[in-house]
Amino acid sequence: MNVLFLCTGNSCRSILGEATFNHLAPAGWQAMSAGSQPTGQVHPRSLALLSREGIASEGCHSKSWDQLPATPDIVITVCAGAAGETCPAYLGPVMRTHWGVDDPAHVTGADEAIDAAFMTAYRILRARIEAFLALPLAELQQDRARLKTELDRIGALLP
């Protein structure tokens, strides 16, 4: 199963989601990320955070949703802007869910405050990914309606 973490810039949250998911995912599950208006670069604080957490970030790069290496089965939007956008037609009948996370790239001020915002975004995404991966995935792959319900629940209930 291919999971796409989608946001507007594909420089922070979606990158954190992709790398964290791939770090934790069982065999047969893979994440990728993209943006509707990619910045073209991964935010250096995202890469630094992933490195501190021991999560590989090789291959993570800011790209458009029309440059995906595979067609996603599940699209998880992680920002308010992307949630309201229509996915391109080529994505077909994919399952969509929204896990909104505040964009740490918009935080200003002291380095400590900015780093804290990145860590908060990471912790929220990691908790949601862990909840996703704790689901009975093999069973839910056969029950798409229930999987959709569970993914929406995770996005709504967790911080």
Score class of each variant (00 low, 15 high):
Asp111Ala: 13
Cys12Tyr: 03
Arg146Thr: 14
Leu6Met: 11
Pro93Phe: 10
Thr77Pro: 04
Val42Trp: 01
Glu53Gly: 01
Phe118Ile: 05
Ala56Ser: 14
Gly59Lys: 08
Asp111Cys: 04
Glu130Tyr: 02
Gly28Ile: 10
Ser46Val: 01
Pro69Met: 05
Leu91Lys: 05
Met119Ile: 09
Ala83His: 15
Ser62Ala: 09
Pro104Trp: 04
Thr108Gly: 13
Ala127Lys: 12
Pro93Gln: 15
Pro104Phe: 01
Asp102Trp: 05
Gly9Val: 02
Trp65Ser: 00
Ala19Ser: 13
Arg123Tyr: 03
Gly92Pro: 02
Gln142Cys: 10
Arg126His: 13
Arg153Leu: 13
Thr149Val: 11
Thr77Glu: 06
Val78Cys: 08
Leu6Cys: 10
Leu158Tyr: 15
Thr108Trp: 09
His106Met: 14
Cys79Asp: 12
Phe118His: 01
Gly81Tyr: 15
Thr97Trp: 03
Leu135Gln: 03
Glu150Ala: 15
Asp143Cys: 09
Thr120Ala: 13
Ile55Lys: 02
Trp99Glu: 06
Lys63Ser: 10
Gly40Tyr: 07
His98Lys: 02
Ala31Lys: 00
Ile74Met: 02
Met32Tyr: 09
Gly81Pro: 09
Gln142Lys: 14
Gly100Val: 02
Ala48Thr: 10
Thr71Arg: 15
Arg13Tyr: 03
Asp103Cys: 02
Cys79Ile: 00
Leu147Ile: 00
Asp73Pro: 06
Cys87Asp: 12
Ala89Leu: 15
Arg45Ala: 09
Pro88Gln: 10
Leu68Ile: 08
Ala27Arg: 13
Ala116His: 11
Arg126Gly: 05
Val101Lys: 04
Leu16Ala: 06
Gln37Gly: 15
Gln141Pro: 05
Lys63Asp: 07
Trp99Ser: 08
Met119Val: 12
Leu151Ile: 07
Ser57Asp: 11
Gly9Tyr: 11
Met1Gln: 01
Ala145Tyr: 00
Val107Asn: 00
Ser33Gln: 07
Lys63Cys: 07
Thr39Cys: 14
Trp65Lys: 01
Pro72Gly: 11
Arg144Ala: 02
His43Val: 02
Gly17Trp: 00
Ser64Trp: 13
Ala156Tyr: 10
Gly9Ile: 08
Ala82Met: 05
Leu24Pro: 05
Ile114Met: 02
Trp29Leu: 13
Asp115Tyr: 08
His61Trp: 15
Glu85Ala: 14
Pro38Cys: 10
Arg96Asn: 06
Leu6His: 01
Gly109Trp: 09
Arg13Thr: 05
Ile15Met: 11
Lys63Ile: 09
Thr108Asp: 14
Pro26Tyr: 05
Gly54Thr: 06
Ala19Thr: 02
Thr77Gly: 00
Leu125Val: 08
Pro88Ser: 10
Arg153Ala: 13
Pro44Glu: 10
Val75Phe: 04
Gly40Gln: 07
Arg153Cys: 11
Cys79Leu: 03
Trp29Glu: 03
Leu147Glu: 05
Leu49Ala: 05
Tyr122Asn: 00
Ala48Asn: 09
Leu24Val: 02
Phe132Asp: 03
Trp65His: 04
Thr71Asp: 13
Ala27Phe: 09
Ile15Ser: 08
Leu49Arg: 00
Ile114Asp: 04
